[in-house]
Amino acid sequence: MKNLAKDIGDRLRKGDKVAFEQLYDRYSAALYGMVIRMVKDEDVAKDVIQDSFIKIWKNASKYDPQKAKVFTWMYQVTRNTALDKLRQVKNRGEKEIQIKDSNVYNIGIAGINPDTVDLPEILHQIDEKYRQVIGALFYGGMTQQEASDHLDLPLGTVKTRLKIGLRELRKIFKDPLVLTAFSAEFANIFL
């Protein structure tokens, strides 16, 4: 699996369209799951995924396999695109609210409220204090400072909880039963 991902990453860098399509098939659902939780609007989420994959294609030559796995890089591109879109929608929404009621993208600031994020089931297996931080950073689209302000926690605590939370998740994913169940669930998406 790892070698396959590396191979696809290398081919992507060379502008291989088949590799790009394979990456889309492999990762778009995982990225969409993150994006829809962040923006809470299907149309916006579709725009974000579309813009993100176009960026991934256009900037394929900038991907450095020495620095990150291809999925990590794609995640970062997509997350930044989603944050840009949220800021753009928020600004547009605020302007239009001053003029008239708007039905363009019914999100705004509430869209990045981690309290209302539909967190994946797997996150409920870790302690709430870690889940809150990971939820805010992964699916709430917050910076660490924003998470610190929102959760009323010192910035250092946010950083520590992110670290421990991710390590707790690693332990869960190392459980063979979880991996088997997860793989089956993930496979169903593409069926």
Partner: peptide
Amino acid sequence: DGMDNLLRASAKPV
């Protein structure tokens, strides 16, 4: 790998 797993676990069909 952990992040990969987490995001796959929260995957939704596009």
